[in-house]
């Protein structure tokens, strides 16, 4: 049996004496779409950082196709960060940012082939017209699409996204989730997405990981997103659960 795309067991991460993640254990296989849900400060971003090799666990292990994150082959994982630490005044065009995803350094010049691949990736996220746009002139949602194109340019087998719909309008975010569904199906990729959108988690994910420092639940959306579980993770949930309506997307 092949190694799972993502496997995490007994993972604990501390900052000082604050346990940010406590004993997390789950596995995601090829073709899985995992939504990571939980309140602010639940450790969602921290979990992704561990999987990217940007943070080290204090206990337990994290593996990408059986390898420690820092040793996994480059191009296997595509990443869209939550907080963009980018320098908005950096003189560059969108297409250069997309190409940077191919080489992991800033491109001095773009070959015809790089340009084609980048345009392809931009077309994929419906942002081809942004290619020549200066980064400083992109709206938040447009920038998010460019980052998404960048993360997909090497057709990664695992895509890790931290609240990718932030700043994208309702139609845009629906398109985004459909695009991810589509990508995951065509490439048998594994998608791991942090989201505050329960609806999206319910309708698009195959699995939901509900976090609140510890692991409240992991499983298909119908079970992991049950009202009791959400209340356990979030405390007071008001009418939010009732708003999660409609049929699950297949």
């Amino acid at each position: 049996m092949p190694a799972p795309a993502v496997s995490v067991s007994d993972l604990t991460v501390r900052f000082g004496d604050h346990r940010v993640l406590d004993d997390i254990t789950f596995e995601a296989h090829q073709g899985d779409f995992v939504a990571v849900v939980g309140p602010n400060g639940a450790g969602k971003t921290t979990l992704l950082k561990v999987l990217l090799g940007l943070a080290s666990p204090d206990n337990g292990i994290a593996r990408i196709f059986g390898k420690p994150p820092r040793e996994s082959d480059s191009g296997v994982v595509g990443y869209v960060p939550q907080i963009k630490t980018l320098d908005r005044s950096f003189p560059a065009q969108s297409i250069e940012l997309v190409v940077s995803g191919l080489y992991e350094h800033w491109p001095f010049s773009l070959s015809e082939e790089d340009r084609e691949r980048a345009l392809d990736a931009l077309r994929h996220v419906d942002a081809e017209d942004l290619a020549e746009r200066a980064l400083s002139r992109l709206s938040g949602g447009e920038l998010q699409r460019v980052y998404l194109a960048r993360s997909l340019i090497r057709t990664p087998r695992v895509v890790i996204l931290d609240e990718p719909a932030t700043g994208i309008d309702v139609v845009g975010s629906t398109d985004l989730y459909e695009l991810l569904d589509d990508y995951q199906e065509t490439h048998q990729a594994t998608v791991l997405m942090v989201t505050h959108d329960w609806n999206a988690a319910y309708h698009h994910a195959t699995h939901v990981l509900l976090l609140d420092g510890r692991q409240v639940g992991y499983g298909p959306p119908e079970t992991a997103l049950k009202e009791e579980c959400l209340r356990e993770a979030f405390g007071h949930i008001g009418h939010a659960h009732a708003m999660m309506i409609g049929d699950r997307h297949e």
């Binding site: 820092r70 960060p81 907080i83 630490t85 320098d87």
Partner: peptide, 19 residues
């Protein structure tokens, strides 16, 4: 040049790309 430029542009992204 390319690595310094990349980290000037977005430090975390460069780190995630193992620079």
């Amino acid at each position: 040049w390319g690595r310094w430029a990349y980290a000037s542009f977005d430090r975390d992204l460069a780190r995630a790309g193992r620079v």
